[in-house]
Amino acid sequence: MEARRQCHRVSPLLLVLLAVVITAGRCGAQVPVPARTDGFVYGGQAWAPAWGEAVVVEAFFDPLCPDSRDAWPPLRRAADHFGARRVAVVVHLFPLPYHSSSFIACRSIHAVHKLNASAAYPLLEKFFKYQEGYYNTPTYTKTRAAVVAKIANNLVAPVIGEANLAAYRAGFNDSRSDQAARISFKFGCARGVTGTPYYFVNGIPLVDLDFPLDYDKWVSTLDPLVGKM
């Protein structure tokens, strides 16, 4: 229960990290501008038709956060209900610092997305399904290399196939996957994200709604917006 409460609660450690990021920015350290906008569009839609032509829901998830795990199915169901032409869902990865293997998980998803864009969501859902095996306590005595190997063999291989594991490992060890995961975190920090799940609808943060958001709440929130399109 404690781990679950921490996901959406503002963490003092995270606030310190946010202050460091903001301070660094004020000292002239520009956050790197990525070649593509951060985030994975659900359903394989491109960014171009999403903005301005659909209600855009942005969700910040940590692959190892229990609240993120529970929040995804109702949002996915609502997205399927409305369809991508009316509601575009974009997931941003936000590795929380108190989930010690979260950055590895996020980096894995970025590496897999580079190999096969359609595999990003299946891998995210694998992390959600088996995340308890990668919590802090089960991985406390394991080396980073052991955690990466377990993720590759147990989660990545079933999604992309064992024949592609060598390409995944090369992508995981490439500095570009590291940079992509860092940018995901900085992107969230720049927008004031302090925990997961965290949502924006058409760029406006959802801060006054009761959490967690179930399917009916998503439909009642999005339906009036879709009706105005």
Rank of each mutant, 00 (worst) to 15 (best):
R5M: 06
Q6T: 04
C7L: 00
V10H: 09
S11P: 04
V21F: 15
I22T: 09
G25M: 07
G25R: 10
R26I: 15
R26K: 12
C27F: 07
G28V: 10
G28F: 07
A29G: 08
A29C: 07
A29D: 13
G39A: 14
V41A: 10
G43Q: 11
G52I: 13
E53S: 14
A54C: 08
A54L: 12
V55F: 13
V56E: 09
V57M: 10
E58G: 11
E58C: 10
F60M: 08
F60C: 05
D67I: 00
R69F: 01
D70K: 05
A71G: 08
P74S: 03
A78K: 03
A78M: 05
A79Q: 09
D80C: 04
G83D: 14
F94Q: 01
L96E: 06
P97I: 07
H99P: 01
S102T: 04
S102A: 08
F103S: 09
F103P: 00
A111W: 04
V112P: 06
L115H: 08
A117D: 14
S118D: 15
A120N: 04
A120V: 08
P122W: 04
P122M: 07
L124E: 02
L124K: 03
E125P: 02
F127V: 00
Q131W: 10
E132L: 14
G133D: 08
Y134P: 00
N136D: 13
P138L: 05
K142R: 10
V147L: 04
V147I: 11
V148D: 01
I151M: 12
A152P: 02
A152K: 06
V156Y: 01
A157C: 13
P158N: 02
I160C: 04
A163C: 03
N164C: 08
L165A: 06
R169D: 11
D174C: 06
D178H: 11
Q179C: 02
A181G: 07
I183W: 01
S184E: 09
F187I: 00
C189Q: 14
C189A: 11
R191Q: 09
V201K: 05
P205Q: 02
F211K: 10
L213E: 03
L213W: 01
V219G: 05
D223E: 15
D223N: 11
L225D: 10
L225M: 09
L225Y: 05
K228L: 13
K228E: 12
M229F: 14
